[in-house]
Amino acid sequence: MKICFKQRSILPGFGLALGFTLVYLSLIALIPLLGLFLRTAELTWGQFWATVTDMRVLAAYRLSLGASLIAATINLLFGATVAWVLVRYRFPGRRLVDALIDLPFALPTAVAGISLTAIYAETGWIGRYLEPLNIKVAFAPLGVVVALTFIGLPFVVRTLQPVLEDLDPEVEEAAASLGARRGQTVRRVILPELWPVLMTGFALAFARALGEYGSIVFISGNMPMRTEIVPLLIVMKLEQFDYAGATAIAVVMLSMSFILLLAINLLQWWSGQRHCVMQP
């Protein structure tokens, strides 16, 4: 039996559909991305290293990674709570909240940026109460965390929700019938079930936060060494026509993103193995 590219099928249109898909994908995404990697070849190793380890760039990595990590963690904890509450409890306004969860997907990031800035500025609705406590959010690293939390909010909720809905209540009843208290059931039966999904949601939120640009440029204040994020540095280098420098930083970021993408795929495969559910 020879190995063939495609199993025979009587459904028509495979060649047309796949051909169009591949051409489109190549023209729109693959060839331009390849161009980016070819650009790095124009740099010597020394130049590359000098660009990506510049003090200002390192500070930006630190902020981007650190703030994304904190924001994703906030989303993990509160997102899990929100998902649990939405699936398990009935209360007034539940459906409205459920629909609202996707707001960060639907609202342009620039709008989110100026709106959050207005709220957390020294005179804003929340900022004015934080000001006397000496907590600065807008135009400070904390603002970056707030914006990234907003951006990543739907991911944990939306990955967790379908799995929670499919969770068999009989398992919990079984645990209870075996004498487990509610806390034990949650900790030892439910949480281990949800672990891969929670990690997937966390990784998705983190990946999204790492690349975010639109909302942050407004709230961070863009102070060198203090509140500059990596995508901002790429934009600045592009505006100065320093394509080589921009490419170097972009390649480092892309590598991080691809590693995350790989991790997310592995996590989804893992949870798929355990739950045998379709991708949401």
Binding site: L33, L36, L210, G211, G214, V230, P231, I234, L261
Partner: peptide, 21 residues
Amino acid sequence: TLIDLPFAVSPVISGMIYVLL
């Protein structure tokens, strides 16, 4: 996986690849 690519790439880089081209 390739179809998911834009979700993994920073929007800034998404624009930049066309500038480079």
